[in-house]
Nucleic acid binder design. Sequence first.
DNA 1: GTGTGATCATCT
DNA 2: AGATGATCACAC
Length: 220
Amino acid sequence: MRPPQTVQELLARAEALAGRTLGWLASQEGLDVPPDLRRHKGWIGTLLEAHLGATAGSRAEQDFPHLGVELKTLPVDREGKPTESTYVCIAPLDGSMARTWDACWVRQKLSRVLWIPIVTAPALQDRRIGAPVLWRPSPEEEAQLRADWESIAEAIHLGETWQLEARRGRALQLRPKAASSKELTWMLDEEGEWAQVNPRGFYLRTSFTRAMLRRHLAAR
DNA sequence: GTGTGATCATCT
DNA sequence: AGATGATCACAC
């Protein structure tokens, strides 16, 4: 599908999908539904990207750069509560990460997100697409994200390799992001020496997206 | 080899 | 059950 020209057009496309199953959408796109997601973890996201006209590929930018919108599918239970954390972007550990929140990648990606809930079901093909939510962080949400990011960024900038664990951050956290724990990347440690560590990514905690979605649905 | 799409698997 | 750490496929 061609890229939407306006945010309104993108939203209209997403709204037209509400209530449809993944099986239906896959058939529209001429794709087979995998038996489960174990070996196809990104399948739902890729399916929605294709249908909504996101630029295919894995470039490090928003899905709809001309609209300033990032697309995220969000797995939810039958009550509409998110059941998984949400990957945001890689955390550069090699010293290339921005020094300020205003300049960082996380803020850019989360500045505007089109959330598409996917309601769980026993069979993948029967999962239903929920009503989309076009979101911008509220001042409170942004303040929390910023505080978490600054805390994490400080640990990285100080080279505290042992602080790269997931407990830090109430809304935003750091977690492994690699093919396996054996994969290594470089980071400057406290002594300024290059050390090898497992790559990390920024993730939104489930509690954060749960509150976000709940607040948004209550306001409709 | 890196980043995006994420969910899986294990431990507490 | 929820959180943390581990992992899978694909594009470029």
